[in-house]
Design a protein around this nucleic acid. Structure first.
Lengths: 157, 157
DNA sequence: TCACAGTTGTTTACACGTCAACGACATGGG
DNA sequence: CCCATGTCGTTGACGTGTAAACAACTGTGA
């Protein structure tokens, strides 16, 4: 085995920093979200993906692909959200196996009420702490990394 | 409620990019790690924290604080790693309630064998894709965010 | 038309995390 | 010295994620 190229100080700082930031930033933003709206981060992601879909509805598999979730996970999560009245299941007209997930009135109201606080939380803990240049670099880094891992994916959807 | 300041295009790109990167990058690095060494990411973190501790040992609570894990989680995880022979539990001499976690020979060998491949994976999927400037900015962003969320924490330990 | 390989969504079994409660022990003030 | 209060680590109950198996259904090629 060849001697590996270890991380130098700057590289180590970036990698460890990224990992710690991931841990604490996500925990904080998710906690804010849950406290203010009663939604978990996955709840918010599902509602958000549905809100930006035509007719506020989408096939389960499509939704799962878009969110990078397994169908199993999404199916289970939808089941729980259904019981809370946030979404509903409908049969698919063109494919009898299919299941269409629909945003309910209550689901729409819930995410609309949650969104301002959520954005404020993201600003408070990340965006407003950074300069426009830093924000730009962060976006570029993410695009660079994602270009290798998911070449055919579009971030703006 | 005041009208919130929504995210502009660059801010949205950075936030969504960060979230997607988190999802895919971590999944990829963890998958590489597990395939090559049989260790999960949490396993690696525990072994890594123990390796860099004096005597390759540490009190459970100290370890948990340092890793930002709950004591409950660490206790359970140590239980599993203990059964695989990667770590061992010892009683604490100065506090009969206490439990000291020790890296075993096998645990040390395992992480030493895993480290080169892990570093290579981190390089392949992140570090080597970025310019020195981008790496520096990423580190600075992380420090900025963490300074607010965990003011008294030192990243370099 | 029909066999068959593939897809869709659900479910079962399991792994792992959290929260709260717990027993055991430590510690400081009366 | 002793009691009240707090800490340490573990555990039980529970929620939620994964992998694999599954029934139901689709669609394609012979």
């Amino acid at each position: 085995m060849p001697e590996p190229r270890w991380l130098d100080d700057d590289e180590f700082r970036a990698w460890i920093g990224y990992r710690r930031m991931r841990l604490l930033l996500d925990a904080q933003v998710n906690q804010d979200l849950t406290r203010e709206s009663g939604l978990s981060a996955p709840d918010y992601d599902v509602l958000s993906a549905l809100t930006s879909s035509e007719g506020h509805r989408r096939r389960l598999t499509e939704l799962a692909d878009r969110m990078l979730w397994s169908k199993s996970r999404l199916s289970r999560h939808i089941g729980r959200m259904e019981q809370r009245g946030l979404v509903a299941r409908e049969g698919c007209e063109t494919d009898a196996r299919g299941s269409v997930i629909v945003l309910t009135e209550q689901g729409l109201r819930t995410i609309q009420e949650a969104a301002p606080g959520h954005v404020a939380s993201v600003r408070r803990h990340l965006i407003d702490l950074l300069s426009p240049e830093q924000i730009d670099v962060l976006g570029t880094i993410a695009e660079t990394v994602l270009a290798r891992l998911a070449p055919d994916e579009d971030l703006r959807r």
